[in-house]
Nucleic acid binder design. Structure first.
Length: 466
DNA sequence: TCTGGGGTCCTAGGACCC
DNA sequence: TCTGGGGTCCTAGGACCC
C-alpha cells in the first residue's frame, strides 16, 4: 500500500456492446447483447439497456432471450474490439510507461511513474482532475465510449473504486480511508473470492470484510488453504503491494469449442481435435513460442470436465506433433468408454512454453558435434549415446524426417512416431491397434533398424525417390 | 438442451533424486 | 529389514478472472 493514491484502474463500460452501438447507430439506446448466439452460448456483455431486463454477463443466451426478446443478439466482432482496445491502451501509455492490461477493456496505470506533465503531483485534487481529463481522452480516442475509473493506494483499492460509480464514473479513494471503505462490503469484493470461497466463508459466519478482518490467519488458512488464506488475510486489511507489471509472458495457449449437440463419433472427435491442434500450433508460431506439455480437455454431456496431458521431451510448435499427441490422449479416454454419453466440449492446449523454437534443438545437439560432447560431459559420463556422436550420419535431416511427430519404422517394433530428439538420440513412441499409447523407446539416430517411414516406402527396403 | 472461451494460480499425490 | 526429509517434475482437478 502506497502513501499516495497513485494506482489507477480503468474499465470500459459494457465494452463489446458499446462498440456495437458506436458502429451501428440504429442500436443506440437499445438493448444489445454480445455473446454466443448458438444453442449453448452465454452472454459476454449486455448493454445497460439490456441489463435493465435482468440480462447479465455469463448468463446463457437462452435465458437472456427470454428476459429480453427484443434485444439485438450479436456474436461479436473481435477485430473491432481489439483495435478499440489498442487505442485506449495507447492513451494510457502516453500517460505512464507502466500500464498493465487485464483484458481488452481493463487496465491498471501506475501514476507514480507517470510521464504526463498534466499530472503535477499526487495530491487528491490533482489526481482527480487528471483522471477526469483522462476519461475525456479515452472518450475521444474511442469515438465516444465511456470508461469508469478508480484511483487508490493499491490495485485492490483502485479496482474496487472503479466499480463504485459505474458507468461513466470516477472515484478516488483518499489514502487512509481504505479500511473504512471496505469494512461494510461483502467478502466477494475481494479478488479471488468467487462463489465457492464465499460459500465456505458464509458457512463460517463470515459475510463482510469486517467479519473477515476478525479471523486469524490460522483459521483462514484452514478454511481456504495456505496461499489463498494469506492473500485474504492481507487484502481484508487493505494490504496490497502487488506491483503493476507492464508485460507478462504467456504460460499457455489453448483452443476450445462447445458443440450444439453432444458428440460421440470417434472420427469426428479426432478430426475436431486435429483442427484445434493446428490452430494452437499456428498461434504458437505466430508468437514465436513452442511448448512441451499438450493438454486435451473434454467436457462430457453431464458437464463433468476432464483433462489429460502429456509432456514431450522437448518443446514443439508443430501441428503434427500436437495433433498426434492430443489424439492419443483422446483415444485413451474413448477406449476407457469415458465418452459414451457424448462430448459437449473439446479443447487442446499447450503449456510449458519456451520462447525458442524446435529448430534450435536440432543442429548441434542432435548431431552431437565434438564441441557439445566435450563441453557438457562432466556429470553425465555414463551416457553411451554421446560416445561417438560426431560420427553420426543423420539421414534426411533436411526433410526433417526425424522431427517430433514424424513417422518412423523399426525393423522389429514396427511403426511409431518421433516423440523427441536430442543428444544423438531419437525417442519413438510406438502405437499399435492393441495399445494406442504404446511403449516409448530411444534409439541412436544412426541405428540401422530405425528408418523414417513414408507411405510410398511401405514394406520396400530402399526407396530411391527423387 | 441451464452453464463460453481464453487464460492464471493453487493443491495434492506420486515418481524420482539426493 | 528400519526409516527421512526436501526438492523438483509431472498429472489431474478446481477456483477464479474478464
Amino acid at each position: 500500500m502506497r502513501a499516495h493514491a497513485s494506482v489507477l484502474h480503468l474499465d470500459l463500460d459494457a465494452f463489446f456492446a458499446a462498440v456495437e452501438q458506436r458502429d451501428k447507430p440504429s442500436l443506440r439506446g437499445k438493448p444489445v447483447v454480445v455473446g454466443g448466439v448458438g444453442g449453448r452460448g452465454v452472454v459476454a456483455t449486455a448493454s445497460y439497456e439490456a441489463r435493465r431486463y435482468g440480462v447479465r454477463s455469463a448468463m446463457s443466451t437462452r435465458e437472456a432471450r427470454s428476459r429480453c426478446p427484443h434485444a439485438a443478439f450479436l456474436s461479436g466482432r473481435f477485430h473491432a474490439y481489439r483495435s478499440t482496445s489498442r487505442a485506449v491502451m495507447e492513451v494510457l501509455r502516453a500517460v505512464s510507461p507502466l500500464v498493465e492490461p487485464l483484458s481488452l477493456d481493463e487496465a491498471f496505470v501506475d501514476l507514480a511513474v507517470a510521464t504526463d506533465p498534466a499530472l503535477g503531483g499526487l495530491g487528491i485534487e490533482e489526481v482527480t482532475a487528471f483522471a477526469e481529463e483522462l476519461r475525456g481522452r479515452v472518450h475521444e480516442a474511442t469515438g465516444g465510449l465511456t470508461a469508469s475509473i478508480g484511483v487508490g493506494t493499491s490495485k485492490f483499492i483502485a479496482k474496487v473504486a472503479s466499480d463504485l460509480d459505474k458507468p461513466d464514473g470516477l472515484v478516488v479513494v483518499a489514502p487512509g480511508t481504505e479500511r473504512d471503505l471496505l469494512r461494510p462490503m461483502h467478502v466477494s469484493v475481494i479478488p479471488g473470492v468467487g462463489p465457492a470461497t464465499a460459500e465456505r466463508l458464509r458457512r463460517a459466519g463470515i459475510h463482510t470484510v469486517a467479519d473477515l478482518e476478525s479471523v486469524t490467519l490460522d483459521e483462514l488458512t484452514s478454511l481456504v488453504g495456505r496461499a489463498h488464506g494469506t492473500g485474504l488475510f492481507h487484502l481484508a486489511r487493505a494490504e496490497d503491494d502487488r506491483p503493476i507489471v507492464a508485460e507478462r509472458e504467456a504460460k499457455s495457449v489453448s483452443v476450445e469449442g462447445t458443440y450444439d449437440t453432444d458428440l460421440v463419433d470417434r472420427r469426428l472427435l479426432e478430426a475436431l481435435v486435429t483442427r484445434q491442434a493446428t490452430e494452437v500450433a499456428a498461434r504458437l508460431r505466430k508468437n514465436g513460442l513452442s511448448g512441451r506439455t499438450v493438454t486435451l480437455k473434454v467436457r462430457l454431456h453431464d458437464f463433468t470436465t476432464l483433462s489429460r496431458s502429456s509432456t514431450l521431451p522437448s518443446p514443439t510448435d508443430e501441428a503434427a506433433t500436437i495433433a498426434r499427441l492430443a489424439r492419443t490422449l483422446l483415444g485413451d479416454l474413448i477406449d476407457q468408454q469415458v465418452t459414451v454419453g457424448g462430448v459437449r466440449l473439446l479443447g487442446v492446449g499447450v503449456s510449458g512454453l519456451a520462447d525458442w523454437v524446435q529448430e534450435d534443438l536440432f543442429g548441434p545437439d542432435l548431431l552431437g558435434t565434438a564441441d557439445t560432447a566435450a563441453s557438457d560431459d562432466g556429470d553425465d559420463g555414463d551416457e553411451p549415446a554421446d560416445a561417438e556422436a560426431d560420427d553420426v550420419v543423420l539421414p534426411d535431416r533436411a526433410e526433417r524426417s526425424w522431427a517430433p511427430g514424424h513417422d518412423v519404422e523399426h525393423t522389429t517394433l514396427g511403426r511409431g512416431w518421433v516423440w523427441g530428439t536430442g543428444r544423438g538420440v531419437v525417442t519413438v513412441r510406438f502405437e499399435t491397434r492393441d495399445s494406442p499409447a504404446g511403449p516409448v523407446r530411444s534409439f541412436r539416430v544412426d541405428d540401422p533398424e530405425l528408418t523414417p517411414w513414408r507411405p510410398q516406402d511401405d514394406g520396400g527396403e530402399e526407396a530411391s525417390d527423387t
